[in-house]
């Protein structure tokens, strides 16, 4: 048996140009993509509507806490104190209780991340295939350390634990996309392309999800 072919689009960043997210505009997908209204303080009507639609999926609406945090982060770019206060009021709990939940999970940020969040997997299977050198290479190219953001805010770099793609190590995730079987040349090309995208877009595509 051949291995299941790893590179068939999907979550992988199809490199250089083509859109890597096949179902993004698919009307079948009931994904709630919330457009920013510019108001970070209150849960306005469309936000609440979306949230209530999600709450209906659970016997207990408290279960919608993680989706609600995702919505908030999608709207504001990160989890703001004001947003947590608004959620607390909505769920009738203390703001601290919201923070307690949000801070447990690594995908919620409490300060603005880089517009392109680079997350290099550092765990053993990737490390065996050169993850350490990927990190060094990116640090050198962007002139930042792990945990930092480039001064223009374009990139931030983190190391993360196994992303479930060890067969294609070394790999990294940039925003929502996986880039795998990395080589030096490919890392360079990916960074260049993201920077070019940056120049041609005023608004970033944004992490989406709930």
């Amino acid at each position: 048996m051949r291995p299941v072919a790893a590179n068939r689009g999907g979550s992988r960043g199809l490199r250089f140009g083509s859109s890597a997210i096949p179902f993004f505009d698919d009307p079948l997908v009931p994904f709630f993509t919330y457009q920013w209204s510019g108001d970070a303080l209150v849960l306005d009507a469309p936000f609440l509507e979306t949230l209530e639609r999600i709450e209906a999926r659970y016997p207990d609406r408290r279960s919608a806490m993680l989706p609600a945090l995702y919505l908030l982060q999608e709207r504001d770019g990160y989890i703001t104190p004001e947003g947590m206060q608004a959620l607390a009021a909505h769920f009738d709990i203390s703001p601290m209780a919201v923070y307690e939940v949000a801070s447990f999970y690594t995908l919620f940020h409490f300060s603005p991340p880089g517009r392109h969040q680079i997350q290099v997997c550092r765990t053993l299977p990737c490390a065996l295939r050169g993850a350490g050198e990927v990190v060094t290479h990116i640090c050198n190219r962007l002139d930042i350390d792990v945990g930092e953001r480039t001064s223009d805010g374009t990139f931030s770099l983190q190391t993360v634990e196994c992303l479930g793609s060890c067969d294609t190590a070394p790999m990294m995730q940039v925003n929502d996309l996986y880039y795998d079987n990395l080589t030096r040349a490919e890392i360079d090309a990916i960074l260049d392309e993201l920077r070019d995208q940056e120049a041609s877009h005023t608004k970033r595509p944004g992490p989406d999800g709930y």
Binding site: I21, F23, V29, F31, Y105, L107, G164, Q173, P207, G209
Partner: peptide, 10 residues
């Protein structure tokens, strides 16, 4: 898991 954005969509 939250990182599987594409998987969630599928």
């Amino acid at each position: 898991r939250g990182e599987f954005v594409h998987g969630t969509r599928v």
